[in-house]
Amino acid sequence: MTAPSAGTVEMTIRFPYKRSLGPVIGAFMTGLAGQQILGIRNGSEVMCPPLEWDPKTGKELDHGALVEVGPAGTVVSWTWVPKPSAQHPLDKPFALALIRLDGADTALTHAVDAGSIDAMSTGMRVAPRWKAERQGHITDIEAFVPGEDPQGLDDSRPEEPVTMMPYNAEIPYTLPIAVNTARNAVALKEKRLIGLRCPVCSRTYAGERGFCPIDTTALTAEHEVQLPQTGTLTNYTIITPVQYPGQTETEPFARCMILVDDSDLVIGYQPVIDLPVEQVRVGVRVKLVWGDGDIEGWQPTGEPDVDDPDLVNRIY
């Protein structure tokens, strides 16, 4: 049985993360910026890439015991990426490989720019091709290339140790729209405020709600009720916006709880219109104001305030 499709919505999670590197990864990244690849001593072995700890036992390693490895190494396993993603280091077909650098006992994962899958084989020798602009990042090595000789060597060395690393994750999602969300959106476009009344407990929920959580009952079109577009402000907060990537607000704004008339439904965290933040208060009578296919907010009706000491407790 396939649920009826109500379309999809596109959404992207995108954020510029900033990572601190700590002593060992920091030294490794600083090394890369200066065209040097470092491993760390772990007993009789050398680990590259280096960790602060012995991954088998958790014991702290001597963070000063860094040794230069490579620059050339041997491919111990590889795969071919015919269609690189936006996150891959190269925008043309390449190999992703485990590379044991000379002098290291573990393998570094990196790209090999071999031109063709036919040029790849386990046991082949590779060397780094350095980027000209290096920032202390794993991609300072643009890719490894077949052969023994590093490419792009220069005299540029970092002036300061590298301590931080940017990470820009970006994932686009295509999310199916739930049936109730879609039906609610249609109602909003038609300037109708709908609710869903639970057939078991008769509580009224917002139009897009999927289930009555009290009775674990699915709410469907047959439970739809038309709601009046008036109500009473029961509770609120005035928010002073803080800035973050994606923030759209600059001035203090109100978010209010509205108890819809003739129902037990409280619609939470609603914007208000024509009600300055200093005049927002419990008991204000409001009516719905329509925006473009959605609720823009709630506006005072001018009726006298409702005087009920329990009103403020109607948060939900």
């Binding site: 999670i13 954020f15 907060t237 928010i239 803080v242 994606g246 923030q247 607000e249 978010r255 965290y269």
Partner: peptide, 21 residues
């Protein structure tokens, strides 16, 4: 500090209430 809680709480959208709101 590696990210931003306000951002994450709003799943990257503007006008985040934040936990305080």
């Amino acid at each position: 500090s590696e990210g931003n809680a306000q951002f994450a709480l709003g799943s990257g959208r503007g006008g985040s209430l934040g936990a305080g709101g």
